[in-house]
Structure formats: C-alpha cells, structure tokens
Design a protein around this nucleic acid. Sequence first.
DNA 1: CGTTGCATTGAGGGCCTTCAATAAAAGTGG
DNA 2: CCACTTTTATTGAAGGCCCTCAATGCAACG
Lengths: 229, 229
Amino acid sequence: MADLSDKQRDVLQSLGDFAQTVSADEDILRQGDRPDHLHLVLEGWAMRYHILPNGSRQISAYLLPGDFCDLHVMVLQRMDHSIATLTPAKIAYIPIGKIKELTAQLPELTQALWWATLVDEGVMRAWIVNLGRRTAFKRAAHLMCELYARMKSVGLVTNEEFALPLTQAEIADSLGLTPVHINRVIQRLRSENLIVFDRQHITIPNIARLNAISGFDPSYLHPEHVRLG
Amino acid sequence: MADLSDKQRDVLQSLGDFAQTVSADEDILRQGDRPDHLHLVLEGWAMRYHILPNGSRQISAYLLPGDFCDLHVMVLQRMDHSIATLTPAKIAYIPIGKIKELTAQLPELTQALWWATLVDEGVMRAWIVNLGRRTAFKRAAHLMCELYARMKSVGLVTNEEFALPLTQAEIADSLGLTPVHINRVIQRLRSENLIVFDRQHITIPNIARLNAISGFDPSYLHPEHVRLG
DNA sequence: CGTTGCATTGAGGGCCTTCAATAAAAGTGG
DNA sequence: CCACTTTTATTGAAGGCCCTCAATGCAACG
C-alpha cells in the first residue's frame, strides 16, 4: 500500500537492525509505549487494535506486507493502541533517529512516506463508512473486498484465493460485531456463494458481485503513481 | 490540528487566490471531482461526508479552522466523498501545482503537511473505535469531548462553551445513528448535566467527567511540537 | 487422545431503528 | 414585523438487527 519505490523500501530496510522474525500473536508495540523504532511489515499479517476499559477490543487496521505499522509515532508522544502479529511475520525495525536523519536528507522519502500515510487515510475513511452505515452482512462483505484488493496489489492473490489468517473473533472486532453474529453472517456469505472461507484461506469466486453487493469501490486504494526514486 | 507554524501557514495562505468566503451548506468538493486546489479552513466549520447508494450519509470528519480539507488529493485520482461547509466559512484555495512546487523546494513544508496528516489519522482511529465499540450514549459523549478538545486547541472555547453548528441529524450521521435516537441520547446527556446544548452552542460544565464517561483521552490530538519553521 | 481454542447453534433480550405524528424554531417574503 | 413555509427537534409505538448467555461440535496441537 505504501507508495514507495522498491529502491526506497530497500534503503529503509537496509537501515534496520536487519529484519526480525516474529512469531504469530506477538505484540510488536503496546498501548503506552514510546517506541524508538518504526516497523515495516515485510511478510505476514499484523493488526492495530485498541482495548477499551470494559475489555472489549476494536481492531482499526490490518497491516499487510509493505505496510508501515506506526508512522504516527513520528508525531505522537505515546502509542494509544497496540500492534500485534496475526501470523509469523518478518518485520523491519527502523530506528526513528535514522528516519529523521534520512528524511532531512531525502525530501522524496518524506514525500513518499506522506503519501503512504494519505493512502492509509483512505482506508480508514472507508472503515468509518463501513462501521457507521452498513449492515453486518454488507460490512463483512466490504472487508473481504478490501482485503482482496490489497492482497492482490501486493501479488498475494492466486486464482481469486488468498490467505486470510483471521479468526471470526478478529473479524468481529474489526467490524464492531460479536463473534456469534459474524458467524451467522459468514454462513450467509457462504450460502450465497459469495465466499469460500476455510482454514485461513478465502476464495472469492465473483469479486465483481461482492464489490457490488458491499458497495466497494477499489479506487481509493490506487494512488497516482508518481514515483520519486 | 495541522502542526504547521504560523509562518508556514501564512506562506500557504498567501499563495491562494486569496481566501474565499463561502456560505453555509455549500459543497466545496463533490464525490467524483478531480480538484486542482487544496482547501484550508480559515474560519468556520466544514465536514467530510459520504453518500451511500441507498441514500444514507456518513460524515467521516469535521473540519475546523486550521484543518486541511483534502490533502489526499495529492495522491488519489478522484474524490470518493464530498466536503461541504456547515457554517459560513473562509476557505483558502491553494493550487495543487503550487503545493507541488513548494514542497519540492521546502522539505520542512512536506514534513509539516505529513505530520498534519498523521494527526488526522489519530482522529480517524478514534472514530473507528467509537463507531465499533461504544454505545450511542458514550459515542455521543466522546464526539463532544473531541470537538471540545479541538476547539480549545484553536482558541475557540470560552468558559467551557463553544459553537457547535451541527443539527442532530448531522450528529447522527457522524455517529452511525438515527436522528430519533441521537435526540434521546442528547436528552439524556442534558438530564445528567453533562452538556448544555442549545442554538448551535454547547457548554460542557465538567469536561473531566465527560472525558471519563466516554473514555476520551486527549493525548492523540497533541503532537510533539517539533516546529520546523 | 486429552486439551485447548475456535466454530456453530439456540433461545431470549435489548439497543437502536422505522414509521408516524406533533411541536418548536428558523428562515422567507410581503 | 407578521403570516407562511421549511427545517429541526421531540415524542410514541412497534419491530428488527444484533447482542448476551449458554451449550455443543469440531479441529488443531502436543
């Protein structure tokens, strides 16, 4: 999703204390942390999540290969949420000091990071609309469409199938629903032949139909490709 | 909200085909537009809103003095939503070409705009949590807390009172609720002496209490003040 | 092959919606 | 400044979408 050239990404990556391998279900950052590294997902999935006082959880983003986890730590004092892996992952740890150095030297890098941030904003606006104004059924369908489009854009969709390493509880927590209800919704998506979802893999036989049903418009994910590198 | 120095803002402002005065309830940008200006709110309120195929509306942001309306047009092809004034407003129209020129010359400006974007993201994450995991009552309370904090940060709160130029229908459309229900929620907020809301003005007699009730934590609105100018 | 986590199912309840009507406020033209 | 219109706020009643509670089935894993 980040609109970085491969070259730029290589630069960033090479800066890190080489990429770390992280197992599944590990917190990379916790609420309250004041991190000194940026994190870039190289392989695997992660999520951004918020825990409320009553214990409930809201997932506010899924982080796929190529996504930065936490650019906002450049300006915000502390993490007001946590980030955790969903699968075994490869994560680049990039010292913030290095980023500040580099962005001072390479204006194009700043711009590229800014643009990655702007694309992320588009995703977040779509989530707000999804949570605010769609039924559980369309809401779930819309999420599947988004993940399909994003996975496709990083080359991880084959034959309309891709890895979807989420439990129903996690899907529920990203859609503002309960696991019980998302279960019934998923069954309906299955019974209407909109998805085949089993063992962490999903197939969307007719993405155009699912896009139409959920009101998904993929254009917000596609930045102008004004490459800088 | 934008983390720009006054000097930087002045520069931007001076660039515009001088500030335009726009009356209330006017679209500044419409879904589908491919704008050639950036818009910066100088005075008044605006909103970002999305219309769904079934006609329902979701408001995804309120834009207060100092906020950019549409930085994302730097990377996205077309507006996937609309922006409209809520009050008579003064808006700076800044040609995108100028911005591209300037950011090429002034790296600090790029960084400042990026940081403004990162702060906006924090607001959006808070909305996602709000929509996904809070009851209507806390959701409304949380919105009031956010607007109080943001208005305060631009010096528009006096004696715990500020202009809140929203109809109940607009509040409903930003919280994913119906006007009927938000009306009952507001009455409860009133009856518990949490707000006094009348004629486009609101007073929050005990902001600490409202923050606590809604789970509002203002820290995400306060960037590190690393000024560049 | 038991343990553990996840998926599934059923029943009942509540938060919020929908529909519909009325009141109150704000805007408009004479 | 007053009649008129339009928008906004308020109230009531009924219903539905989704939640809560609780149990059972199922699959992964050591």
